[in-house]
């Protein structure tokens, strides 16, 4: 230990070791008083653990980046947003916004949205298990829509994007190889033309989260209205002009996809 560390309390002894491991300055490491080879082992372990954690939580992003770029992003992200919870799986909520600030994020503008999608899928994978409370369906027959509210399954998330996120995701994760190729072609075609606003939904019918683009006219507006806590009547008003939106069709699909946790009366 160097003189500075020796004279400090044990808190600083631990802090000195942490700072040596997390420092990028060779002088700080060399003067930490700890065995330099040992510090470099901890540094390599840290980077490897972080990289493994991010590759699990952000599989699409890590498929899109080559190994040098992913290592660089990991190193930078560790500095800007160190883990705070003692569980690597909970680390990464800020990666999407971090990527927006990087050169690679600027060069590939869809990368940050892919990170946001990956994070929502990752959270859904470990999210609370919820199934539709079927008995609440009777509210639809017994109450006025003004008094009916929808509590969505905890694992449902909507994401607004200008990029073909669903195709990019399927191109890397669909179990069917042919479907992966089709999705890759679709994604490349869509990226080659002007960006188009769309809403991507993450949901979890059973254990495996799914990703889809909301295609039914008005579906995104309708769902956002309900998710924001407004009544069914308000949500239906928003789509009353749409010839293509059918509440019955939406409800059937929503139940099939396990989007709704329960209907509530208020």
């Amino acid at each position: 230990m160097n003189t500075q560390c020796e004279s400090e309390s044990v808190i600083n002894e631990q802090q000195c070791l942490l700072e040596a491991i997390w420092s990028d300055d060779p002088k700080t490491i060399a003067e930490s008083g700890f065995d330099v080879e040992g510090i470099y082992i901890y540094r390599r372990n840290l980077l490897a653990n972080a990289q493994r954690a991010l590759s699990i939580s952000f599989p699409t992003v890590f498929e899109l980046l080559d190994s040098d770029a992913s290592e660089h992003i990991t190193q930078q992200f560790l500095k800007s947003s160190p883990p705070t919870q003692g569980d690597w799986a909970q680390w990464g909520a800020a990666l999407a916004s971090f990527i927006e600030t990087t050169d690679v994020g600027y060069e590939y503008p869809y990368l940050a949205d892919c990170a946001a999608l990956d994070w929502h899928v990752h959270c859904a994978l470990h999210g609370i298990d919820q199934i539709f409370q079927q008995s609440s369906l009777q509210l639809l027959g017994n109450c006025e829509p003004e008094h009916i509210f929808v509590k969505f399954n905890h694992n449902v998330k909507l994401l607004e994007t200008k990029y073909p996120l669903t195709d990019i995701f399927q191109a890397h994760h669909d179990v069917d190889e042919q479907q992966r190729t089709i999705s890759m072609n679709n994604a490349q075609k869509a990226l080659a033309i002007a960006p188009k606003e769309q809403t991507v939904m993450i949901y979890r019918p059973e254990f495996q989260p799914k990703v889809t683009t909301l295609l039914m006219a008005g579906e995104d507006v309708f769902m956002r209205c309900l998710i924001s806590g407004q009544s069914l009547a308000n949500a239906l008003n928003l789509v009353s002009e749409s010839k293509h939106f059918s509440f019955e069709n939406w409800l059937m699909k929503a139940i099939e996809r396990n989007l709704i946790y329960t209907f509530k009366e208020n």
Partner: peptide
Amino acid sequence: CFTWGKQHGQTMHSGDLLPIA
């Protein structure tokens, strides 16, 4: 071992099992 520390005033996790005196 120890794992918790501070960085810029914020609690942080070391990401590894670090020895103690």
